[in-house]
Simulated assay, not measured.
Amino acid sequence: MTTYVMLLNWTELGVKNVRESPTRLDAARKLLGEMGGSFKQFYLTMGEYDMVVVCEASDDAVMARFALSLGMKGNVRSQTLKAFPEAAYREIIASLG
């Protein structure tokens, strides 16, 4: 499984209906699960982003479908980062020669 970090901001619609956000989070977690992925961590954050999600999916296509599905609902805008674990990081750096 590949790890991804999603940086999320509420849209005007999303913040207008912020009381429904926990229900939307549960639905997003279920949707990613149905796609074969999983949420590892969720954070409400202060600063440039409203929420941060650490999740796993089998490949980039699954994660793209998930991010697009969230965006289509109109409550959040996302930026998705592919994350490399420390072992992969060390391997990449070592391969530089």
Rank of each mutant, 00 (worst) to 15 (best):
R19C: 15
K73P: 07
N9R: 10
A88H: 11
A61S: 10
A83Q: 01
A67F: 06
N9Y: 07
P85T: 05
I92N: 09
L70H: 10
V15H: 10
L70D: 00
S78V: 02
L96W: 13
L7F: 01
Y49H: 02
A88M: 09
F66N: 04
V54Q: 06
T23C: 11
E86K: 13
M63K: 01
V18K: 12
A57M: 03
M63D: 02
F42S: 06
T23V: 13
K73I: 11
G33H: 05
L7Y: 02
F66Y: 13
G14M: 00
T45P: 00
K73L: 15
A67C: 05
F84D: 05
M63Q: 01
D59Y: 02
N17C: 15
E56S: 03
A28H: 12
G47V: 00
L44E: 03
A28R: 00
C55S: 11
M72T: 13
K82V: 09
V54Y: 02
S21Y: 15
M46C: 04
A88K: 07
W10F: 14
S69M: 13
A27V: 06
N9K: 10
D59V: 07
M46Q: 08
G33D: 04
T80I: 03
A88N: 12
V62P: 13
E34T: 00
R29M: 12
Q79L: 12
S21T: 12
L96K: 14
F84C: 08
G74D: 04
A28P: 14
